[in-house]
Design a protein around this nucleic acid. Structure first.
Lengths: 149, 149
DNA sequence: CTTTCATGTAACTTTTTAAGTAACAGGTAT
DNA sequence: ATACCTGTTACTTAAAAAGTTACATGAAAG
């Protein structure tokens, strides 16, 4: 398949809404930062709205975060857009008559779960505030490097 | 895109080779346990061979593990088939002129790396021997449940 | 030594999933 | 009332992996 960038783009949208909260936040504007189409942005924002992460009003370009940035974690965003889709993909059609084929799904699946959980725990410890603050620090460094030239 | 089951299928192949080491191990036989085509199996086995996990001989249906099962980890298999592909996908085309678009890749990317590393560390602690022993225990439980009916 | 069977590999097709595009009904606001 | 924007549907395109076909070449048994 085409690799999904929905998680990545959703974090982008949330960070953008916060960083540019003083400006006009049309799906067009946000799309130009992500370099995608406005429809893709509106679709993702629909998902984020349903997950209770943002508030939007039809017809009006004023999306707002539903909670402070330090109360939104990467895990919240991940779960909003990916749900409980498996992270490592099990082959779910294996021969049940075979010792290996008949048991590997359950066995491998549980190790996959452990690994996924380890990753999601990391995401639960990172907030949107962390992301934004780090972005702003990176930006200042970048500007300083420009000046030093 | 279609979701890849290569990691899953590769573990399947390795476990199958060990569990059924006394039988004739054609790509056809292995494929019937995975419920896929022999070509897919041969392709994956090619990858596993290049990664030094199995030894095969052209024309002869006698694949062998290159190392004992307790010296092959899920991480070895994962790296063999997935390489260092990103686990969580960054959107790599964002607007560099924007504060968010210009920095989010680096920032999010590093959190993605942390999460991926946490997952891979789990995989590095699980050996093929663990997988096989657990499969065999599951199988015995299954057989016992049959008898109790 | 030839027949049978298997591997390794290339080329092509199909399937799947998400992104991109077009269109539009219905709010919002000046 | 006019201009703009969202939310949503339907359709098209793109990308990646799996499935399929085909075949050259090696192995091994009679």
């Amino acid at each position: 398949m085409r690799v999904s960038t929905r998680f990545s783009d959703s974090v982008h949208i949330l960070a953008f809404i916060e960083v540019y909260s003083k400006t006009k936040l049309t799906s067009e504007t946000i799309a130009s930062s992500i370099e995608t189409s406005p429809v893709v942005v509106r679709r993702l924002m629909g998902v984020l709205r349903e997950a209770g992460l943002i508030d939007t009003k039809k017809g009006s370009a004023e999306p707002k975060l539903s909670r402070p940035t330090n109360e939104i974690t990467l895990l919240d965003v991940y779960l909003a857009v990916e749900g409980d889709r498996q992270l490592f993909t099990l082959d779910t059609s294996t021969n049940p008559e075979c010792i290996v084929g008949g048991n590997i799904q359950k066995v491998l699946g549980s190790y996959y779960e452990d690994a996924k959980m380890a990753a999601l725990r990391k995401f639960n410890n990172v907030t949107l505030q962390d992301i934004i603050e780090t972005i702003l620090v990176e930006q200042k460094q970048k500007e300083q490097r420009q000046l030093n030239k």
